[in-house]
Design a protein around this nucleic acid. Structure first.
Length: 670
DNA sequence: AGTAAAAGGTTTTTT
DNA sequence: ACCTTTTACT
């Protein structure tokens, strides 16, 4: 493995004796180098349990460790502490949390949970009541999170990022105070808490103990860490800890989450004596693709002294295609994907990338019509679907009866329970007082539920009873609770059958776990990405096209990349036009998207797009090509706009059918 | 009074 | 698809 590396990569792998920063441009073999370095460390007889590999997603960690194992299973790479900052934080807090006054049975709140809790507090304090404008709960939660993770004062955050909320500083303070104490009382932690508590532990009494746990710490995607994460890294290092961080400042795209490239730039200051090694030979893409990517980056105000180069000087010019509207774009891309497959590129060698989750809506319809299997990453998560949250809330009250948020959600599922009844029930069950008795009280019949829901309440009580009294596995519990869901879903949701089917899928996922709490935590820290609904069960198709937001595509590569909706306002997003910092990030996003392509890059741009998301009306605007692409059009091949021919629509029987049906219908009243 | 049904308006990116 | 607001029922 070592022999296959270039000189710089080899240096990065074998370096010892001081902290190491690897500055690795896109496609320069960063993963390969990290894998080789972990391998080398284990071959040097390190105890795998004393090696920590922090990555941006759990998938990345699993993949890297898998590759270490593949070379030689005896290395026991699975023992390495691999995962995201949050996943490792969770693991450490379960064992050491007591030192910080944390109950080991805490529940983790995901984003929408914390937003809901924020909303609960907001409503209870009567903010935003009729007439008075007040930031929405999403905004309140976003302000809070930005404040916490950037470690800035509330007033500073309001000034720079939320000037229109500046008037509500005092009310926000009230909400934040209450939100925090509510979290503690409910024994729940939000994402930010996990990092804060980890950092707190390193600074506290058990700090030395923590620092003794690991001899080797490796961190991937260091440019996308926030100040707290940088503190954690410093806090986990002894003077002799072997530290290695890898990053690329040109690919920093998580500024909205308070990540800062300062962490990379200050690495030599934070870790005196640090060595820096730069990787700049790109092994991924052809020169024509890199020429475009480099030209995008060169437009930045920031100075990136990296021009990627490759020995792959052959290759086709990237293509820039202008379409009339989104429909044309969807049809063109679908056809292009199939054409590429005919030329020998499997669907799995191709990806469609876009700025925002909903940008693929139209394309997904077209792919479904043509029976092209796909998987979508990023965008709306399966876990965020209301009915899935319903079921998870049921599991959560079993796991942590102090979880007020989960109780509220569960009780509201009952017919006839609105805000008023909910308040009364909470009182009768002691939910607002975080009584651990709430669950047993409820099971034993406490809490006067409305008569309209007698049957439902009875089923709920008995289901909860079955799941809490006997020694049941998570999947059995999901299965048992499904009965209650089937009673409640039909009145609550439109397509209840499909939603109940989703519960089955959840039961299947649960089958991999023996412990309910663990199941819940892993699900929130590493949510399964939603697959296209028509793509079928994941394992039936062995070849599928990837649809992904640019953010979720980080670190991945495909032979062919189709970038869609490259209009100004989408890339860069119009939300980010306010300041140079935002704009810079959008530019890097475009750069990340383009550097995912190995052989073929196509940039698509629909001239006309609907103002309203669901395109229910015909309101539209004419868009301009992305400002990042327009100045460098000469680096692209631009085919003459070819209208989609009728041939390409063959097989789409419903085109004519819709007219037929409409005619038949109107004949009823004409 | 309190809940349910209907209408209206909104969504960047994610651990 | 979802959340909030409005209106209509009990």
């Amino acid at each position: 493995m070592f022999d296959e590396l270039n000189t710089q990569q080899q240096a990065a792998v074998s370096h010892t004796g001081s902290p190491l920063l690897i500055v690795a441009g896109a496609g320069t073999g960063k993963t390969k180098t990290l894998v080789a370095r972990v391998t080398r460390i284990l071959d040097d007889d390190a105890d795998p349990n004393r090696v920590m590999l922090l990555t941006f997603t759990r998938r990345a960690a699993a993949e890297m460790l898998g590759r270490v194992t593949a070379a030689s299973p005896s290395r026991q790479a699975s023992q390495v502490w691999g995962g995201t900052f949050h996943a490792v934080a969770n693991r450490l807090l379960r064992s050491f949390g007591q030192a910080a006054g944390l109950s080991s049975g805490f529940t983790v709140l995901d984003n929408s949970d914390s937003t809901d809790l924020m909303g609960m507090v907001r409503t209870e304090h009567g903010f935003g009541e009729r007439g008075k404008r007040f930031p929405r709960k999403e905004t309140v939660a976003a302000i809070y999170s930005r404040m916490v993770s950037s470690q800035a004062k509330l007033t500073a955050v309001l000034d720079t990022d939320y000037p229109w909320c500046a008037d509500h500083g005092d009310d926000l303070r009230t909400i934040f105070t209450e939100y925090t104490s509510r979290k503690r009382a409910n024994k729940v932690l939000d994402y930010d808490d996990m990092l804060l508590f980890w950092r707190g532990l390193t600074a506290g009494a058990v700090g030395d103990e923590l620092r003794r746990l690991f001899d080797h710490i490796l961190i991937d995607e260091y440019q996308d860490t926030n100040p707290i994460q940088a503190d954690i890294v410093r806090g986990m290092c002894r003077p002799d800890t072997d530290l290695c961080a890898v990053g690329d400042d040109a690919q920093a795209i998580y500024g909205f989450r308070a990540a800062t490239v300062e962490n990379m730039w200050q690495f030599p200051d934070h870790f005196p004596g640090a060595t820096t090694i730069t990787l700049d030979q790109n092994y991924r893409s052809t020169m024509p693709v890199l020429a475009v990517a480099n030209a995008v980056l060169a437009q930045s105000n920031d100075h990136y002294d990296k021009a990627l180069w490759s020995t792959r000087t052959d290759g086709v010019m990237p293509t820039l295609v202008t379409h009339n509207d989104e429909g044309d774009q969807s049809r063109y891309v679908s056809t292009a994907v199939l054409d590429a497959r005919e030329r020998g590129m499997d669907l799995r060698d191709q990806a469609v990338l876009f700025r925002a989750g909903h940008h693929s809506d139209g394309l997904e319809l077209e792919l479904t019509r043509r029976d092209i299997p796909y998987r979508k990453y990023g965008g709306l998560k399966y876990l965020e679907a209301a009915h899935v949250k319903d079921l998870l809330s049921l599991l959560r009250i079993l796991d942590n009866p102090a979880d007020q948020l989960a109780w509220h959600r569960v009780l509201s599922m009952l017919e006839g329970v609105g805000p008023a009844t909910l308040r009364r029930l909470s009182d009768e069950l002691g939910i607002d007082r975080q009584s651990d008795e709430s669950l047993s009280l409820f099971i034993d019949g406490a809490g006067r539920t409305p008569s309209a829901s007698d049957q439902q309440a009875q089923e709920l009580r008995s289901a909860l009873s079955d799941c809490s009294s006997t020694d049941t596995s998570p999947s059995q519990e999901v299965d048992r609770l499904k009965g209650f869901c089937s009673m409640v879903f039909p009145t609550r949701y439109d397509n209840s059958a499909a939603r109940i089917a989703d519960i089955d899928q959840l039961a299947a996922t649960a089958a991999n776990y023996v412990n309910r709490g663990r199941f819940l935590t892993e699900l929130t820290l590493d949510p399964p990405s939603k697959t296209g609904e028509r793509a079928g069960p994941p394992h039936l198709d062995d070849d599928w096209l990837t649809l992904s937001t640019i953010h979720s595509a980080k670190g991945l590569e495909w032979r062919a990349v189709h970038l869609i909706h490259a209009a100004d306002g989408n890339i860069p997003s119009e939300m980010s036009l306010g300041d140079d910092i935002g704009l810079g990030e959008e530019l890097r996003l475009a750069y990340v998207a383009m550097t995912r392509a190995k052989d073929e890059l196509t940039v698509n741009f629909p001239l006309r797009f609907h103002v309203n998301r669901r395109a229910l009306d015909d309101k539209h605007v004419y868009a301009q090509l992305s400002r990042f692409v327009d100045p460098i059009r000469d680096l692209f091949h631009e085919p003459a706009a070819t209208p989609v021919t009728e041939d390409e629509i063959v097989g789409l029987a419903d085109i004519g059918l819709a007219d037929e049906v409409d005619t038949a219908l109107s004949s009823l009243w004409d």
